[in-house]
Structures are given as C-alpha cells and as structure tokens.
C-alpha cells in the first residue's frame, strides 16, 4: 500500500518536473519583459521583480516597427494556413477516396519533399522568385510556405478523411448529390476538427518560419516577426526588456492556436502523420 502511495507521489513529482521544465523559459521571458530596466541587473536571478512595468510593451508598440512585423506575420500565417487547408483537403480527399493510377507516385513525391533538406531550396527559390518580383513580398512568402506545408497537411487531412465512413458520401450520391457536392455538404462539415487542427499546425509553422523569410525579405516594410526580432537582436542587443516584450507578443498567436488544436493533438496528429 505504501508502495503504491510512493509510486503515485513519484508519478506526480515527475509530471511536475516536466511542467516546470516546459514552462520555465516562457516564464522567464514574461518576467524579464515586465521588469523595469533599473531592476534588471540589480535583481539578477530573482524569480519575480520587486515591481513590474509594461513600459517595454508600450515602447515596442509605439516606437518600433514591431506592429508592422506583427501585421505582416499575421497576414502571411493566416493566408498560408487558409490556402494550405483548402488545397490539402482537396488532395487529401483524393488520396483517401480514390483508387487511381499514379496515386503511389503522388504519395512518393510528397514523401520525398519531406526528406530533403529545405535549405537546399534557399538559393534556387531566391533565383526563381526574384525575376517575378516575389522577393521582398509577402505574396512570395505565402506561396513558398504554402508549398512547404502542403505535403504534410495533405497526409494529415487524408487521415481525417479516412476516419469518415465512405457510406456517408455514397448515401449522399444516391440522394442526388454529385461527388463534389457530397464532399462539400457532407464530408467537409464532418472534418471540421481536422480542418481546425490543420489550420493550427500550418499557422504555427508559417508564424515560426525563419530561414526563408531571412533570405527572401530585406528591409522593414515586409519583414515578418522572426526576421524583425532577429534583426532587432543583432542591432540593439542590450535592450533585453523590449526584446522579450516583443518575444511575448510573438508567442501569443502561436499559443492561441495551440490551445485551439491541443485537444486534437493526440488523436489527430498521429493518426496518419509522424512529422512536426
């Protein structure tokens, strides 16, 4: 009996340790972002400053280009996630419902895109986009991000479609619907959780992407949040309070989307896909 109680205590303690490890960096980010500059160095490793301030946030919002970065990132991440979700639900449906020649070639093609280093594409994509005027443009980023995320999202959507009985659209087709109407009116509404999960994954991915944004974007007007923050860091690497305030702002949309999708994570993500 005591053995069981000890096991339970050890179990809870281990969970707690994981939670602390997971949250501590984010907590520290938040802490520094609300610490007044004069306390930053004097109070060192104290867990919470003796008094707090939102001065850093005010400064970042009013006096820096971060609102622009934030807006750019929001535009890019939203457009990308919507585009990817629409395209990948179509393709995922095809993979889930049709048997056709060339299907395995498509699957193989998409698997290959998941295997090679995306850094390989940095140079050629820059070369391809620049004559089209798509470097230094949010549209260019959206196109690139959409393509990068579509293979994984397609597998994800396929696994959600696989979970919906074929009978339903057959019933709809007998009721008088064409396949596309059945897809739109019967299957899609039932895939809403899957669609939410896909939107969330892609949003987070597009919100976080750094390398291609660094390569394709120069200058502040179309910089995304990661690019802006990194430029800021390398230029003025002493204003820690402001940088962390900006960091917390970058964290908010990602966390919101995470909360939206987290309950589908375990059922949804692994159903057919093993990639992050």
């Amino acid at each position: 009996m005591t053995g069981r109680i000890l096991m339970t205590i050890a179990h809870r303690a281990a969970i707690l340790a994981y939670i602390v490890f997971a949250l501590f960096p984010l907590f520290w980010l938040l802490k520094v972002s609300v610490t007044p500059n004069d306390l930053l160095y004097s109070e060192g490793v104290r867990l919470w400053p003796s008094h707090t301030t939102f001065e850093h946030y005010r400064f970042v919002i009013e006096n820096s280009a971060f609102p622009t970065f934030f807006k750019n990132s929001l535009i890019v991440a939203c457009s990308t996630s919507v585009a990817v979700t629409v395209l990948s639900s179509l393709a995922g449906y095809a993979l889930s419902r049709f048997r056709f020649r060339g299907k395995y070639a498509i699957v193989a093609l998409m698997l290959i895109t998941q295997m090679f280093p995306l850094v390989m594409l940095v140079a050629p994509i820059f070369k391809m986009l620049s004559p089209l005027g798509l470097t230094n443009s949010l549209t260019g980023l959206v196109i690139v991000y959409t393509a990068f995320n579509v293979p994984f999202a397609t597998f994800l959507m396929q696994s959600f479609f696989d979970g919906i009985p074929k009978d339903l659209e057959e019933a709809a087709m007998i009721d008088g619907a064409s396949r596309f109407i059945a897809f739109r009116q019967i299957i899609l509404p039932l895939t809403l959780p899957g669609i939410a999960a896909t939107l969330g994954f892609v949003f987070t991915a597009a919100w976080s992407e750094l390398l291609f944004a660094l390569m394709l974007i120069s200058g502040n007007t179309s910089a995304t949040f990661p690019v802006g923050l990194l430029t800021f860091v390398s230029k003025f690497s002493v204003d820690f309070g402001q940088m962390m305030a900006a960091g917390v702002m970058a964290l908010i949309p990602a966390c919101l989307f995470f909360l939206l999708i987290q309950r589908y994570l375990v059922q949804g993500l692994t159903a057919g896909a093993v990639k992050g």
């Binding site: 984010l26 980010l29 919100w207 960091g247 989307f257």
Partner: peptide, 15 residues
C-alpha cells in the same frame, strides 16, 4: 507540457 512545441523555433532559440 506540450506547450513548448507551439513556441516558434526562433523564439525558442532566443529564449
């Protein structure tokens, strides 16, 4: 415990 996964990688790095 799953939250870190949602943190953008550049931010995780800076953090």
């Amino acid at each position: 415990v799953f939250l870190p996964w949602a943190v953008p990688t550049f931010l995780a790095g800076l953090n």
